Simulated assay, not measured.
Amino acid sequence: MAAVLDAAIAFFRKAEFTIEAEHPGDVVQRERLLDRAMGPARKRKSSEAIRRGRLPAQGLALVARDRDGHVIGTVRLWHVDAGVGPHGAAVPALLLGPLAVDADHEGKGIGAALMRAAVTEAAARGHGAILLVGDPEYYERFGFFAEKAAHLVMPGPFERRRFLGLELKTGWLDGAAGLLVPTGTRLSQPRIARVA
């Protein structure tokens, strides 16, 4: 694990929660948390269409845990092509989401801690930009602005003012235009043996 994430983990161990890499055993808790926080409509969102059937970017699936080890927050980032650049080449980026915190733990800075850890880790891993769909009133404090995604579109309905971008490398999204396309590793499907 990167040194930056290790430092964040050490800091948050003193608090009521810790931030760490998601483990395979967190799936059930994470999905229940997302269902509670976002409701049944979450799977119909445009950003979900990009994530469906894909694995999150390496090292960029994070959870917040309470002192008993329960998942109380989650954030994941996903590989996408953010349209094409001025020279016609695809522009690799990350799509952040969903970010969710258990309602019983809201107001403790967990969402902000997850965001800072995710952005810091993405930058440390050399990524150029992060995109998301969310309330600008919340995400602008982390450096996300609609102007950075002004010429990009989601596959399906989305609110233009809520489609935001953050450049981790200056100028990464300059001239990028077009449709976001998922590029991350596909989930492998288990083989089902046929009985003759």
Rank of each mutant, 00 (worst) to 15 (best):
G83W: 01
A177F: 01
G178M: 01
K108Y: 08
G156I: 00
G85V: 02
I110W: 07
P86M: 01
K108D: 11
V153T: 15
A100L: 14
A103W: 12
A118N: 08
G178Y: 00
P136T: 04
A93D: 05
W172V: 09
E137L: 12
G165Q: 07
G88L: 01
A90W: 06
A150F: 04
G85K: 02
L164C: 05
E140M: 09
E167M: 05
A123H: 13
G109T: 02
F144S: 01
R125A: 10
G165N: 04
L99E: 13
H87V: 13
F145S: 12
P86H: 03
F144D: 05
A82Q: 07
A100H: 14
A100Y: 13
L180M: 06
G171Q: 04
L164W: 07
A93I: 08
A122C: 03
E167I: 04
L114N: 05
A176E: 03
E140H: 15
P157W: 10
A112S: 13
G178F: 00
G126V: 01
A112I: 00
L166V: 10
A117K: 03
E159L: 08
G126E: 03
E121F: 06
A129W: 05
A146Q: 15
A150L: 10
H105Y: 15
G165T: 06
A89F: 11
R161I: 10
A129F: 02
H105L: 09
G83H: 03
I110T: 03
K169H: 13
D102F: 01
A113F: 00
A82W: 04
V101F: 02
P136R: 09
L173Y: 10
G97I: 04
P157I: 03
L96N: 04
E159Q: 10
